[in-house]
């Protein structure tokens, strides 16, 4: 005869594996009627939100291309959300942008909202103003200065009255003697033979 206390204890022990197994099992996912369930949906990564028209909206995409994802990937939000499917930041930022846009904010206002919150580093490229102009202009200006300087330098060397630098020290300056030339000719004949 088994007493009530022992019966409950055995029952609890018997339940433990079932409870543990249930904990290991994946949470249920909704199954659409028009597609077969995957045998293991969790091997394809995070469950994606269903596509909406705003996901492919040209204005939203253009806007997201100007803003950096904050996950540390160095990509813009659009590229990150359509490339790095492990990222949780870019889908959230996308939703925020869509919400702001559907609430009536213009793209520039949305950009301003993000810059106010995250700082200029949220922009994929710094605005071309103030100190940032040095970033945009310096390489081109240096290149132009180099072009002008180089051209002037070469022109100065051939200016009237300027004495061409004699090639005094280097081997190029010395015309080879007949023996050297003959050796060179022999070698070249041999090459062409």
């Amino acid at each position: 005869m088994i007493d009530r206390r022992r019966f409950l204890a055995l029952g609890a022990v018997a339940l433990v594996p079932a409870v543990l197994r249930a904990q290991d099992e994946a949470p249920a996912v909704p199954v659409a009627p028009d597609a077969d369930p995957l045998r293991d949906p969790f091997t394809v990564g995070r469950v994606r939100d269903s596509l909406t028209a705003m996901d492919s909206d040209a204005v939203i995409i253009a806007l997201e291309r100007r803003l950096r994802c904050t996950c540390g990937c160095t990509l813009d939000i659009y590229t990150c959300r359509t490339t790095d499917f492990t990222c949780t930041f870019s889908p959230a930022l996308h939703k925020e942008i869509v919400a702001l846009y559907t609430a009536g904010q213009t793209p520039e206002q949305i950009i301003a909202t993000f810059v106010a919150r995250e700082g200029e580093s949220i922009l994929m490229a710094p605005p071309a103003e103030g100190f940032n102009l040095t970033g945009y202009l310096l390489p081109g200006l240096l290149m132009a200065a180099g072009l002008l300087g180089l051209t002037a330098w070469i022109m100065r060397r051939k200016a009237p009255g300027a004495v061409p630098t004699p090639a005094a020290t280097g081997p190029t300056a010395t015309r080879p003697d007949e023996d050297q030339l003959a050796e060179l000719r022999r070698a070249l004949d041999e090459v062409d033979a």
Binding site: A32, D34, L38, V47, F85
Partner: peptide
């Protein structure tokens, strides 16, 4: 890119 509902969709 993945699935929205754990199916072949």
């Amino acid at each position: 890119a993945g699935t929205p509902d754990g199916t072949e969709r």
